[in-house]
Structure formats: C-alpha cells, structure tokens
Write a protein that binds this DNA or RNA. Structure first.
Lengths: 345, 345
DNA sequence: ATGAAAGCGCTAACAC
DNA sequence: GTGTTAGCGCTTTCAT
C-alpha cells in the first residue's frame, strides 16, 4: 500500500504532478490536442490511469460554458396522457442510446401543469444545465416552444411544428401520407364506406392524418366523412349515428389504444371485427398485439424518430450552422388481423 | 434603452456592484442567511430582479461539491421490458413532481445492455453530475446496485432488496401480503382450486407474491400449486396440463399485461372469464381497463412509491443520517370484472 | 511542444 | 453584519 494518502478526489493537478507536466498539458491531452507530442500524451494518460482520474463536469462546464447534456421535455399529464402512452418511454430510451454513444447526458423536464413544466424548462436553461432540448410532443400554440424560440435556445421537435417551421429542427412522419396509406389499405381491400375516428381536436398529427384519409378517399371517388371523436357522450352519439346511417365497412382510427376502445365498442354493438368492420390504426405500439384480433396498424418508427432527434440536435450543438435540418421518417403498414377484404365486394 | 451594454450573462459580481455590496453578501442573500440584515437582503434582491440574475449551477456545484440533481436509473431493455411497462413513466413523472418542488433536477441513466447502463451510471457519478440515484427496478444480483453500494453512493431502491437490506433506502409494497390478498380475494369468492401464474423466475417481486399466495391457500386448507410461467412452449404445456388436471376456478396472475395474455389464451380454449375461471392480477395499470372484462387487480400505488423514493432520497442527501429509511406502501384490491363468486360454490 | 497564470461564477473562512 | 480573499477543477491565452 502506498502510504501517501489518496486525495478524496483526484484532479488535473494530481495528474500533472504525477506525470511531471503542467496542468495545461493534461488538459490538452484530455482533448487529444495536436499540440502535444505523442510521448507526453502517453505519459499523461498513464498517470490518469494510475490515479483513476475522471474530469469534473462542473468544472469543465464552468470553464467551457457548455454542459454536455440535453434536456428532454415530456408532455404534461393532460396532453396525450404520457404515462399511458408507451411511445414516450421508447423515445427516451432511444435518446439515451444516442446520448450514451456521444457521451451526452440527459436531463428530464416534467410537470403536472404547463406552468410547472415551463418553470422546469426555464430553470434548466437559466442555470445552464443543458445545451439544448428535445420536445417529445408537438402541440398547437405550445408556450414551451414559444419560450425556447424566443430565447433562441437550440431544440429539436418530435412532430410537426405549427409555427416557426423554418426556424426549427424537427423530425416527423409524413402524417398526411400515413393517413392516406391507412385509408388506401382499406380501399385496396375493397372497402368503400370508410370513416375516420380521431383522438382529440387539438392534436396536429390527427388533423394531418385526417387530411391524408380525405386525399385517399377523394382519389378513389369515395365519400369523405367528417372526423369522428370518441370521448364524450356526444361523440358516442355521433359515432353511433354514423354507424347506422353509413354502414361503414372500414374505419381509420387515430391510434392503437383508441382502436382497442373502438373495437370493444363495436363488439358490444354486435359488429364483428374484421368480419363486419375492418380497423386500421397508427403507432404499432404494445397495444396492437395485446389481444386478438391483433391490430393492423401503421408503424411510425418511433425509435428512429427519437434517434434522429437526438443525433440532429447534438450535431447542431456541436456545429451550429444556419440551416436547421428537418427530417421525415417513413412509415410502414403492418398488416395483422383487423383488416380483411370486404365481403361481397 | 440603457446604453450600457448588458453583459452576456449576469453574475453575482454584477449584482454586488448594482446593490453596492460584496459578492459574499449576495451569495448569502441567495441562501437567505440569517447573517444578513433584512434591509440589505431587500436591496440585493431588487438588484437581482433588475438584472435578471440566476445563479449558475456549474459554479455552485464546483464550489459546493454538490449538484442538486438525482439520477434515475431505468432498467435495461431486456428486464421487464420497460418500454412496454407503463409503470416506469408514471414513476418518472412522480419523481419529477417531487424534484420540481424541491428544486432538484433529474438526470436519466439508460442503456440497452447492463454494461452500457453501468457505464452511464458510473460516468454520472464520476463526473459528479448527481448527488444520488433512484433505482426504478429491483433485480436479484444486480451489478449496478453492487456498484452503488461498493462506492457508497446514496441511492433509493424501488422494490425489495435481495442483499444489503439494512444498508439501503428502499420503498416497496409488501409483496408477500399483496400476493396473499390476491389469493384471499379469490377464496372469499368461494374459490377452492386456485393457481398462480408468474412472470419470470428472476423477479424478486414474483417470488414474494407467490409466497403470499401460498400463505393464503395454506391458511384456508387448500392445495398450493407450484408457480406456472407463461412464456415458452414448455410453459404453455404445463399451463394446459394444469388446467385439465386441476380444473382451477381462480388464477392469481403476475401482472395486468400477463393477465391479458392469459385471458386471451383461456378464451381460445373456450374457458369463459370470469364465468368459468376468475382472474386477479397486479398493478392496476392501463392494461387493466383496456378491454372487457376489465381486470380485477391489486393497485400497488406506484405513484406513491415513486414519490416516497424521491422524497426519502432527497431528505437523506440533505441530512445524511446513519439510519436508512425503509418504507412499505400499502396495496389495495380493485374489484372489477374478472373475479366472480364461484358457481355452485 | 510545453508552462505560467488568469479567469469561469460561486462559496466560505477569515477579517473587521 | 459585511467585506476580502482564497479556493473549487478546468480551459485558454500568452509566453517561451
């Protein structure tokens, strides 16, 4: 055992002493600066090894004015019920993978209310805890986004921006096209009377998908029906009416979870899925294969979305260029059991 | 407009100058130190207000040797499939609430593999990014936990520790008791032939619940059956055999999601739930009320678990005492549609 | 190619 | 009560 007492925390100074060089040399070795000769680098690295040195983040941050961490902003409880939506965790995990690779850290901003969330975001930024943010959701007129934009804080948006389109990094699916793909899938299976069941009126995604649905039906010379919701008693009445009047054979549904609810509702109403009514939804989440009939659904490739968001944001932080990348991740129809060829079609 | 150029970033020095005091006075005002007179505090606060000052975290950390942030450790993808398990996000959200209140920040540690996760945790610790951790899962022989323990890093465990019981803060349900409650619920409904369907053999929780199940059945002088799994083809065979030989009228199932799978399987096999077989499971997660029959299940109060974990950890960080708190959060039987009185019982 | 030294923004011991 | 000042651990001119 070495008698000299190990310092509580080994610093760049200790390494410098051990290697017989100046602290600046150690610092440069850390960044693998070309100014330092290979020989000394080796010496320094050995000293680091020996002493078990790891740079202190806070000190680096202070000197650098950069934290190597990105803030991930979860939606508040009321919006899309993140705790209920498995997509968010998947996204976080993928962002984690990218961050691990790039030696970035993740800080999380959450809140029960918009105000709380905004405070959290503001605090993280003011106290210089993060270099940039990833917004996991996209809402119309989002105050958080306005804040980020106004303060010129770098961020990437998962979803489609309602404003500042040209001044934000965003990663999204082509929601309109995926709406069209969904409807097309039904049409290709011979369906002619097709409805659209949406989530909530505030979701940008939903609107786009509905447009895609309309595109497909118009192209096929079929009747485009207004978007139905499935939440309030009024919604149910409307849905019920729609079923009776239109006798649809196919339904495009906002997401998997909603599809499960619709499915239940239809079965209660003695409609068999897919025999009487076919269903296609979005996301290909856990819910899609939970119980039979397994859902035919559109995979939006969340993991890829999240991965790109992290990668693009980090790249932008490292070399801030004037151009802010936008990226569209393709979707994919996953055929399972809820869509079948229309009978007698 | 003031002609004097606003400094890029306003520091304690600027505030001191503005208020006509020393930096230390500002610093003390920040912590509301009793050493400073109310008058000067007011002056200083006004100056802060005027300049829009916010303390720099990195600088505080460096001087304090404390970050006001806790690391939250998600399980790796292979264990309990966190991305599929809605409980984790709920926990994170609750931890977020507590952290927001206490002005703590959350850093996230994730990884696709145990090694990656461990690296992430180690890095966070070495670089002094967090004061402590919350482990969202509890696995037997977890290398991460060993690391935290060996390095004497403060952490709170959600779940039951397999080792170091007396040297760790943990928050858990009484899993054994909840297993008993589940079985008792069935017994009270007149069931006599009751089986237990578990998740995977590696889960500590599962073992405990199974013990509780055994307790209940033994107390009621009923036959205790070995734990069944429901994963591999062999498991299915075993389950099938069990059904035929034992003709159970009730089943205790490891968690809601598994219960959904069991339910499907039973229905395929022409067993009606709950008419032929009653089902009770654990967690009261989204899955419980996704489709009819809604699951009778045991609410483990995840939110409370998570909240306590955060609260206890933070308290411990602030006043590290010798005694490490343990806490048991009560469970609650939520009766819905999958348990009914046994016929002809 | 390397070293000395002046910060980065804040805290705390020590003076008064 | 309040000010002075020496760090916290690292980066980065500016010398050499």
């Amino acid at each position: 055992m070495n008698l000299r007492k190990m310092p509580m925390t080994v610093t760049i100074k200790d390494v410098a002493r051990e290697a017989g060089v100046a602290t600046s040399t150690v610092s440069r070795t850390l960044k693998d600066s070309p100014l330092i000769s290979e020989n000394t680098k080796v010496k320094v690295r050995q000293a680091m090894q020996k002493l078990g040195y790891t740079p202190n983040f806070a000190a680096q941050n202070l000197a650098n004015k950069s934290t190597q961490t990105i803030g991930v902003i979860l939606p508040v409880g009321t919006m899309g019920n993140p705790a209920q939506n498995p997509l968010f965790l998947e996204m976080i995990q993928e962002i984690g993978v990218v961050c691990n690779e790039q030696k970035y850290m993740i800080s999380l901003a959450t809140g029960k209310t918009m105000a709380e969330l905004k405070d959290s975001v503001r605090l993280m930024h003011q106290r210089k805890l993060v270099d940039g943010f990833i917004l996991l959701y996209s809402e119309a007129k989002d105050p958080i986004r306005k804040f980020l934009h106004d303060e010129k804080i770098p961020y990437a948006l998962l979803g489609k921006p309602d404003v500042y389109e040209n001044e934000t990094i965003y990663i999204d699916n082509d929601n309109r096209l995926s709406g069209k793909s969904a409807a097309d899938c039904l049409i290709q299976h011979g369906h002619q009377r097709i409805g659209y069941v949406g989530l909530t009126p505030s979701q940008v995604v939903d609107k786009e998908r509905y447009k895609g649905y309309s595109d497909a039906l118009r192209d096929a010379n079929l009747t485009v029906h207004p978007e139905l919701y499935f939440e309030t008693p009024t919604d149910f009445m409307a849905f019920q009416e729609f079923l009776e009047e239109t006798q649809p054979t196919g339904l495009v549904v906002g997401d998997d979870r909603l599809a499960l609810r619709v499915l239940q509702y239809l079965q209660l109403d003695k409609y068999k899925v897919p025999d009487d009514i076919s269903l296609i939804s979005f996301n290909n989440s856990v819910f899609a294969t939970l119980s039979h009939p397994f859902l035919t659904t559109i995979d939006i490739h969340v993991q890829e979305l999240a991965r790109q968001a992290a990668a693009l944001l980090i790249r932008h932080l490292q070399e801030p260029s004037a151009l802010l990348p936008k990226m569209i991740v393709p979707h994919e129809v996953i055929e399972r059991e809820t869509v079948m060829r229309v009978r007698g079609g």
